[in-house]
Design a protein around this nucleic acid. Sequence first.
DNA 1: CGGCGATGTCCTTTATTGTTACCATAAAAC
DNA 2: GTTTTATGGTAACAATAAAGGACATCGCCG
Lengths: 344, 344
Amino acid sequence: MVTIKDIAAKCGVSVSTVSKALNGYSDVGKDTVERIRSLAHEMGYQPNGQARALKTNRTYNLGLLYYIKYGLGTGMSQAYFSEILNAFRAKAESYGYDITFISKNIGSSNRSFLEHCHYRCVDGIAIICAQFEDEEVQELLRSDLPCVTIDYVHPRASAILSNNQQGMRLLVARAYQLGHRRIAFIHGTPHTPVTNERIRGYREGLQSVGLPFAQEYLIQADFNDMDLCAQKAQQLMRLSQPPTCILCPDDYSAMGALRRLRQLGYSVPESVSICGFDGITLSQIVSPTLTTIRQDTQTMGALCAERLIKRIELGNQQKSMPLSDRMHIPVQFLEGETLGKCRL
Amino acid sequence: MVTIKDIAAKCGVSVSTVSKALNGYSDVGKDTVERIRSLAHEMGYQPNGQARALKTNRTYNLGLLYYIKYGLGTGMSQAYFSEILNAFRAKAESYGYDITFISKNIGSSNRSFLEHCHYRCVDGIAIICAQFEDEEVQELLRSDLPCVTIDYVHPRASAILSNNQQGMRLLVARAYQLGHRRIAFIHGTPHTPVTNERIRGYREGLQSVGLPFAQEYLIQADFNDMDLCAQKAQQLMRLSQPPTCILCPDDYSAMGALRRLRQLGYSVPESVSICGFDGITLSQIVSPTLTTIRQDTQTMGALCAERLIKRIELGNQQKSMPLSDRMHIPVQFLEGETLGKCRL
DNA sequence: CGGCGATGTCCTTTATTGTTACCATAAAAC
DNA sequence: GTTTTATGGTAACAATAAAGGACATCGCCG
């Protein structure tokens, strides 16, 4: 590999001059800069990121926490998070940052997430998909590494979420408009910011159309657990007053409920309507297409990168940067075939 | 951050002793090692990867070429490749390697893939999902960076592919068994190793059951292009002797064909059967479930990592390491609902 | 049994990796 | 003579590699 030393030798100047010329310092002669630059290009010079990082203490590397819950739902929640990841990556790269996956126990060396971050000297970390109840994730959040989270809120990080309340209100409003009066909500993992917001939105939605809130129509399940949601949907239909419309925690769960109810002889949406949440590409490909809420993963991922880089570059002068902040990204109602006119 | 210097000072020994103690060299006293180790642990020491890399010229970082073709099929081919990616990542991490996405034009600095690799000093590169006709990808392959490819063959890299021939033979055999005598094949991107192997497998399959090969039943399309495949399927059905079974290049394409043919009034599989390829999770969730070939993405990804690391660690003594090699991973037939008994 | 070199253990010193930061310095300009 | 402009020298950065030094132990011979 060609280094600045080689360039210096060939150019007849010192290494510091080369360094300064390549980094755009003003105290180098104009023609010298020209000579050095063209020679560097000609020799195919690439700076050594490691050496630069060692000296400047900046790697232009972003840590990424992105791991799927084992067992349950493997390969399911993929679509939603991988869309966010792609948008995140694209934006980060446009700012000159690379991405490193952060994991624990790398090479059996029992490194925690935070230790891994230190080892790789990442400038900051984005937590896009993780189990927040994990102590190691909490340790990461408590650390002084700049941090941005998706779908989670923490006092020391920037948070990016969809406007979940709005999403639920939209679903309830549309269902009401189609004549539904018994609208149930099977919600995702309890006690998470996302679920809390969704429940609030659901109740607000009911309230704004004048429907009463019924505890029996609010059921707990999980995210991306098709079978669990299917089971809960089935349970709902056994009520003496079964709902005419069921809102699910996500598109996969909705597909699970849909399949189960059809197997049980219910026709969708004729005898019962079903809605998803997320609006993954797939939801509009399957038949019937899902009525769902499209989360703007593109914006979420991009914003996540921007916020993180902002936190990094504003650095430790913590004046202009709040310790924590929360952004809600607008969502969009997607009309599909699983929510129909209420026939009762 | 705590460095070996700090440990050395606190421990009353020199930095090199600390370095040696932590790296398991034999010429350090047993109790000294003990003292240093426990102190390092206590102080929360983590080695600085950058500094280590600078000196040893090894980063334990693997470059990953993984970018989706723009426009067409975005978010579609995801499932297959992201399964491979996950397996790759898991295996690489178990060997102590991290992963860095490689891209061009990072931060508008117009770096090529190879330059990006040099900048980050990756030890090797895995090309999991890329456009191989891209000159920059070829440059990467020509370089002396250890390299492993998925679904592509190059004289200077290890290649991992599914046993595509076997897959096609299995499909043809099963279709024949169900009474089909007019079996068409809409193939993926032409002149790629995968397509070539598939076509060969298709022809072998026909031959082994004694069916003639008909040029009009071999149609060119693309991978993961639902609309194109749908259009080609429609075209096939307009033949005077339309096929009774259509084999598609991948699951998404199959779903496209399925949807289109149903829209046109054909019932699947009653009046025409359809098969996919890949066996993504989704294919077994949708209704009807797809008859398809499951590619063993788990093994492919894991093997990809292992081969790459082997190439790296055997290093430049190129005796035991062939310049190029090719591995074919067995596939599995997945019985679904889209391939049925032939009713003609 | 004492002296000498050989060997081995344990640790330190010094050099090196590629880069940038900081300070010094020489020449030119004012 | 002072300022400006352009350049060079050197010391970090955190770690490892190579070489070497201090000291103890051992074997062998006179």
